[in-house]
């Protein structure tokens, strides 16, 4: 289309190849850390492709969020999998064939759709500053969307903490919240009414 210079094309194919190859590596490599960071690389490349389509803000946000998220994800991986950094052969799959078949069919259907559907011509032109246009959209015409997203995020934080933690603040300090915290925070098993330890 209008901006299809050779440089943009090359950059796009670079990003595309990296995104797909590293995406596939997630389920191929032998270590949790590598799998997590392969996904991070794949996301960075996806963000790069978005940048090429002038969606700078979304592209950079994808990079920022995903690197952060994968850094945290790696912790969960290691915590739940109990692995050391050794490259350990692991295969933790079930119904491998079905999954492979399903994904291949999906790819063929979607891919042929992408290629065969006669896509219409572009309507309208992008605004000169896409980021500013986005900002105006979420603060003016589509403000309701953002107002809804905010509470959903807060609810997610609360739900996440409530689901995953076994302690409450009463565990740490007992009923008297004016106490200074113990150091270390808690000793031994989780204990109700947090015994204070003067050390």
């Amino acid at each position: 289309m209008t901006d299809s210079s050779l440089v943009v094309d090359l950059a796009f194919w670079g990003c595309a190849v990296v995104a797909v190859v590293f995406g596939a590596l997630v389920f191929v490599v032998d270590s949790m850390a590598r799998a997590t960071y392969a996904l991070a690389v794949s996301f960075v490349a996806t963000g790069g492709a978005l940048l090429l389509m002038q969606q700078s803000y979304l592209g950079v946000i994808v990079v920022l969020m995903m690197v952060m998220e994968m850094a945290v994800m790696a912790v969960y991986m290691v915590m739940f999998m109990g692995m050391n950094p050794a490259l350990m052969p692991m295969s933790m799959v079930h119904s491998h064939r079905t999954a492979l078949g399903a994904s291949l069919v999906t790819f063929v259907v979607l891919g042929s759709g992408a290629v065969l559907v006669p896509w219409p011509e572009r309507r309208g032109a992008p605004s000169p500053d896409v980021t500013e246009a986005l900002g105006r959209a979420i603060m003016e015409s589509h403000m309701l969307v953002m107002m809804a997203v905010g509470p959903v995020m807060v609810a997610t934080i609360v739900v996440g903490v409530a689901l995953s933690t076994a302690r409450t603040r009463y565990d740490r300090l007992g009923d008297d919240l004016d106490q200074t915290p113990t150091d270390p925070p808690l000793r031994g098993e989780t204990q109700r009414g947090g015994r204070r330890r003067d050390r």
């Binding site: 076994a166 302690r167 098993e189």
Partner: peptide, 9 residues
């Protein structure tokens, strides 16, 4: 299980 009741290595 660690002091937070979560299984850890």
């Amino acid at each position: 299980p660690d002091r937070d009741g979560l299984e850890m290595d």
